[in-house]
Amino acid sequence: MTTTPTRLSKQARREQLLDTAVAIVRTQGADGLTLVTLAEKAGVSRPIAYDHFATRSGLLLALHRRLDERHRAAITRALRDAAPSAGAVARVISAAYFACATDMPELSAVSAALKGNPDMEAFQHEVTDSYADLMATALLPYSGLAPHVLRLRCVGVLGAAEALAAELNRERATDAEAVTALTDLIVGGLDTGADR
Rank of each mutant, 00 (worst) to 15 (best):
D129K: 02
G159I: 08
V92Q: 01
A161D: 05
A39E: 00
F53C: 04
A49Y: 00
A62V: 02
A86K: 12
P47R: 10
G32Q: 14
T174N: 10
M120L: 14
L38F: 15
E69Q: 03
A176V: 04
S9I: 02
L164C: 11
E121W: 15
A165L: 09
M104H: 13
V179E: 06
T6F: 02
A82E: 01
D129R: 02
D68F: 09
F123D: 03
L63Y: 02
R26Y: 11
D195K: 08
A194E: 06
D81W: 03
G87T: 07
C100S: 11
V36G: 11
V149I: 10
E69C: 08
T3H: 04
P5C: 01
L150S: 02
A101Y: 13
V22L: 11
A49C: 14
D184Q: 12
A132M: 08
A74V: 00
A82F: 01
V22T: 15
V44G: 10
A99W: 11
D184P: 13
A21R: 13
R7H: 08
A12V: 04
R26G: 10
V36Q: 15
D191E: 07
G32I: 12
L59V: 10
D175M: 15
R72S: 02
S111G: 12
D133G: 04
T192K: 09
D68H: 13
Y131W: 10
